[in-house]
Computed example of a mutant assay.
Amino acid sequence: MENVRFDTKIAVLLRDDLPTWQRLNVTAFLVSGLGTTQPEVIGEPYEDADAAIYLPMFRQPVLVFEGSKELLRGAHSKALARELRTSIFISDMFTTGNDRDNRATVRAVGADSLDLVGIAVYGPRNVVDKIFKGARMHP
């Protein structure tokens, strides 16, 4: 089989001081919007040998990184400046229990003051690499 190399990258950057359960939760939330806004990232449905059908998933890997609060803030600024499609998760969202309240917590704060705990970006591979420069792969 031929190795597939993608022109694009899906990447998540998490703040390095989050407990494991928050890292997993934030990652799931951050990537959940990509398939609805960027349909090209979604592959075909899966089917097993018994013909059971499963939901389609991303067609390419999702790379997960970690970094400091400052690195996260810088990556966020760079992503906005480059007009990449970006999802965010802020610390106040841990205190809400629904999408409406999550959106209200984000709406209440300016971009430069967001207490970011994670971002996800999708875009050209080289651009995403520049935005996440200095981040390390999540262990």
Rank of each mutant, 00 (worst) to 15 (best):
A135H: 04
A11S: 14
L84I: 08
Q22N: 12
G118A: 08
I90N: 06
D101Y: 07
D99I: 13
V121K: 05
H76Q: 00
V127H: 02
P45C: 01
R100M: 11
P139D: 11
P39I: 09
P61E: 09
D112E: 15
D129T: 11
A11I: 00
G33K: 06
G67L: 05
D17C: 07
D99V: 14
R125H: 15
H138G: 04
G74E: 14
R23Y: 04
Y122S: 01
N98V: 06
W21A: 13
A52L: 08
L30V: 10
G97A: 07
L80F: 04
F58W: 06
F89S: 04
N3D: 10
N98L: 08
M93G: 03
S87A: 15
A135L: 08
D50W: 13
E40F: 12
L71Q: 05
R73D: 07
D92R: 08
D115K: 09
E2P: 08
I131K: 05
E47R: 13
T20W: 13
F132W: 03
D50N: 13
T96A: 06
M137Q: 07
A108N: 10
V41G: 04
E66S: 09
E47L: 01
F29N: 06
V121P: 05
D112G: 10
F89G: 03
N102Q: 08
I90F: 05
T105Q: 12
R5A: 08
V12K: 00
I53V: 12
D101E: 15
V121H: 02
D92Y: 04
R136Q: 10
D99G: 02
K69R: 15
V109C: 08
A120N: 05
H76K: 00
D99W: 10
D99C: 07
R85D: 10
M137R: 12
G123V: 08
E40Q: 12
R100E: 14
A75S: 15
H76T: 00
F6R: 08
I10L: 15
R73M: 06
P61S: 12
Y54V: 03
V12Y: 01
I42K: 01
D99F: 12
R85G: 11
R136W: 00
R85A: 12
F29G: 02
A75N: 03
Y54W: 13
D115W: 00
D129A: 15
M93N: 00
K130T: 10
K9M: 13
F29K: 07
M1N: 10
K69W: 05
V31Y: 05
T37A: 11
W21I: 11
L72K: 05
L55S: 15
S32K: 08
L114P: 04
E66M: 08
R136H: 06
L30S: 06
I90S: 02
Q22G: 06
R125M: 07
F132E: 02
P124K: 13
